[in-house]
Design a binder for these strands. Structure first.
Lengths: 151, 151
DNA sequence: GTTAAATACGACATATTTTGTCGTATTTTC
DNA sequence: GAAAATACGACAAAATATGTCGTATTTAAC
């Protein structure tokens, strides 16, 4: 089954939620968890991962929270998935460590490499702002917007 | 992590293996299992599922086996995945029975519907013969081939 | 007609991955 | 100092994927 995981869903929900606010306004993990009625801990961790990758920035302590630190026009689904779920590998045979035990007799390795490449391209071409239909006030302010997103 | 599963891999390996033979020649599950050094039972079941969906046909008894019963030019990856792994649903919220518990407060449902549609289109456009680079003697014989597969 | 080789298929067992929880530390405001 | 927040590793639980077993059935060969 080809399925995106919860972490990526949470990340998308977070970005959607935060993008509705003014860029300077902070958002807490609790706030998002309450809003989507999801598990606080997991959502908090996803947001922390996004801080590591500089998609968000955080302020600690009382009154702390997170704010957007990236242009959602330039962020794509491949990157976001990588941030929260690690490298996108269509099949096991691609990862370095524990490579697939069938690989020595596999008759479809090259097709799978091709397929993996195509799938990565597919996800890379999907911008988050387009996907989530975000007007993106931050990006409009901080960076030149190359093309208007239609629809 | 977006990853195709073993069953789909086995199905592709089976088709690749079988397509190298003359259309009339039978292939046993054991033969494929030996060739790719994979688990016989699982591979046999995948082949049986392919019989159900009429991608293969089978002959029972000693000297029995499977043979191709479909045009691999017309078979696409979406269909093949569906046959061996059930419906392709990007996210849980789409399936009828146990729908996602977050759906009532989800703020990204419509984007996910769109994404799911795009992903399905992506897989539907990938023909098996193209993916596996199969010359497809069966289809060349039994059906008119619309366009030659380049590369 | 018995045996052997094969498909057919449900039930179960195991392994892997995903998802969520807990505990604890740290930062900052009040 | 207390409270509200991020930070983060370790573990637990749940879900899913994968593989195995047992048994039935079909058919060819002997």
């Amino acid at each position: 089954m080809v399925r995106i995981n919860r972490k990526l869903e949470y990340a998308l929900m977070v970005l959607k939620y935060m993008s509705a606010k003014a860029p300077s306004e902070l958002t807490t993990a609790k706030e998002v968890a309450d809003f989507i009625k999801g598990p606080f801990d997991t959502i908090a961790k996803v947001m922390q991962q996004m801080v590591h990758s500089e998609l968000l920035r955080s302020e600690q302590g009382v009154q702390g929270g997170y704010f957007l630190a990236t242009n959602l026009n330039k962020l794509n689904l491949f990157k976001l998935n990588e941030v929260v779920s690690g490298p996108m590998e269509l099949v096991k045979c691609f990862d370095e460590d524990h490579h697939c035990e069938l690989s020595s007799h596999c008759n479809i390795q090259s097709p799978l490499v091709t397929l993996n490449r195509k799938l990565i391209d597919f996800f890379q071409e999907l911008s988050i702002s387009e996907l989530l239909r975000i007007k993106s006030p931050l990006s409009a302010k901080s960076q030149s917007v190359k093309k208007e997103v239609a629809g």
